[in-house]
Design a binder for these strands. Structure first.
Lengths: 248, 248
DNA sequence: CGCTCGTTTGATATATTTCAAGAATTGTGG
DNA sequence: CCACAATTCTTGAAATATATCAAACGAGCG
C-alpha cells in the first residue's frame, strides 16, 4: 500500500501547470514524452558552450546550474536549478549552446529528444504556451539578476540570492524555505553574485552577525523572513508565482 | 511609381522570420493583427513596473529601453530596442509588469491587444514558435548582459555594448554598423553597463584614445571592427543570428 | 592518516564611486 | 533667431567597496 512510483516527469508537469491549465490530453502527452534517465555526478556537464545539443533536459533530482566563462577567465553563473526544472530547452532549441549547463550535486536528469518537444508544442497549444511562459519567467529572473549583480552591494546581492532560492524551493514543494541546504560552495555563490570567494565569505559572516541568517556548513536558516527580504531588496513579483499562492 | 507604403508591422514580421519560415497564411495573419499606432515622445513610458498591460507593443520607429529601479534608487537598464522589436509581450503576457519600458527617443509604437497575440500563437503554431524563439534569444541576450555587468571591466563592458548595438542594427537592416548614432546619454550607458556616468565618460575617452572608436556628439564610428570585438570580448554567438548570415 | 578541497582571516592594492564645479550642448520661450 | 534655462558632458580630487595576494585552518575522503 505504498505510494505508487511517481512518473519521472510529473514534477516538471506540475511546474508547467503553474502557468496554465492542461487538459488530460495535454498532461498525458507530456508524460508520454520519450525520454531516457541519466544519473550524473556533481560537476558533470549536461551541455557545453558551443555544443549542438539534440535533447531537452529535465532535472529530476539534485541541483544544476548554468554559466559561461568570459574572456578574462571569469565565470558567471546565471541560474540555479532544482528538481522539476527544465534545465535545457534553450540551447537545444536554438541549435547551438551559448553557455554551459552543469550539475551542482549528484542527481538524475531526463533527456527528451528535442524533436519531440517541438512536436508537442505544435500539437498541444497549451503545452506550447506553458513552455513559452516558462521562458518568459526565466527572462524575468535574468532581468532581476542583471539588476542584482549590477546595482546592489555585496550583502544585498547575497541576501537576495538566498531569498530567491528559498522562495523557489517553496514553490517547487521541496523542503522548508526557512531552513535549507544551499548546495553551493562559496566560490559558486561568488560566481552567481559576481563577487570574489573571499568577499562572499566575509559577507556571509556579516549577514550572520547581523542576525539575518544562521549557518552550519552549507545549511542556512532564516530566523526572520521579513528581515532578510528587506536586507535583500527582494520583491518576489519577478518570479510571477502569484497564481501559485506561495507564501512564506 | 514610389514605394508602396510598407505595412507598419512588416519590420516585425521580417524580424520574426529570422527564426522560422512562415507560410503566406502565417504572414497574412500577423499583418492582420489588430493594432493602433501611437506616437510617443522621448522619455515617455510604454509600460510601468506594476502595471497590468493589456497590449503587446511593437516599436515602429525610434528607440526604446527596458529598466527597473532597485531599492537603493539605482537604475538598471536591461535592453535597448530598435524598430521592429517587440518591446513588450513579456509584461502583457505575464499579467503584471515587473519592469518599465520607456522611449529613448521620439518614435511610434503599435499596440496589439494581448488577446489577439495569444490567439495567433494558438492558431498559427509557426507564429507561436517564432515568438517562443524570440523570447529564448532575448533570454540569451540577458545572460550575456549578466556576464557583461558581472565579470567584465568598464572598458570591456562598454565596448561590448557598442558591438552588440552595431550588430543588431545591422541585423535589423538599419544603418551601417560601423558608424551610427547611439541614442543614449552617458547616464543611460552607465545604467546599461552598471557604471557611473562619470566613469562612462572617462572610459569612452579611453576607448577613443586607444583608437577603438571615434566620437562626435552621440555618433560613434568604429575604425576597426575586429579590434573593438577583441576589446569588448564580444562573441556574437549569443545573438543567434547565424541563419541571418549577418557579417560585419 | 595524509591529501585535497573549501573556508577563514589579514594586509594591501585598485577599479570604480562619490563629490564638486565648470564647460558645452540642447531645448525653449519671447 | 536670440537669450536663458536645463540637461549633458568633462575634468579633478578624495573616498570606498571589493579584489588580490597569501597563508593557515578545517573537514571530508580514500
Amino acid at each position: 500500500m505504498s505510494d505508487p512510483m511517481p512518473h519521472p516527469l510529473s514534477r516538471m508537469v506540475a511546474k508547467l501547470e503553474l502557468w496554465t491549465t492542461f487538459s488530460d490530453l495535454d498532461r498525458a502527452a507530456l508524460l508520454a514524452l520519450p525520454h531516457i534517465v541519466r544519473s550524473l555526478k556533481a560537476q558533470q556537464y549536461i551541455v557545453w558552450d558551443g555544443d549542438q545539443p539534440q535533447n531537452a533536459c529535465v532535472l529530476l533530482s539534485g541541483y544544476a546550474f548554468r554559466h559561461k566563462i568570459v574572456g578574462n577567465g571569469g565565470r558567471q553563473i546565471f541560474s540555479i536549478h532544482m528538481p522539476g526544472d527544465l534545465v535545457d530547452v534553450q540551447n537545444a532549441l536554438l541549435g547551438r549552446a551559448d553557455h554551459n549547463v552543469q550539475m551542482l550535486t549528484d542527481g538524475d536528469v531526463a533527456l527528451i529528444p528535442m524533436e519531440a518537444v517541438r512536436r508537442i508544442a505544435f500539437r498541444h497549444p497549451h503545452v506550447g504556451m506553458a513552455l513559452w511562459y516558462e521562458t518568459l519567467v526565466e527572462g524575468a529572473i535574468f532581468r532581476e539578476w542583471i539588476a542584482n549583480v549590477g546595482r546592489r552591494n555585496a550583502d544585498v546581492r547575497i541576501a537576495h540570492l538566498l531569498c530567491e532560492f528559498a522562495m523557489r524551493l517553496e514553490a517547487s514543494g521541496l523542503g522548508s524555505p526557512l531552513g535549507f541546504t544551499l548546495p553551493m560552495t562559496q566560490e559558486q555563490i561568488a560566481d552567481a553574485t559576481s563577487l570574489t570567494p573571499v568577499h562572499v565569505n566575509r559577507t556571509l559572516k556579516l549577514l550572520e552577525t547581523r542576525g539575518l541568517i544562521t549557518r552550519d556548513k552549507r545549511s542556512v536558516t532564516i530566523p526572520d523572513w521579513r528581515q532578510l527580504v528587506a536586507a535583500g531588496d527582494f520583491n518576489p513579483a519577478y518570479l510571477h508565482l502569484e497564481c501559485a499562492s506561495v507564501q512564506i
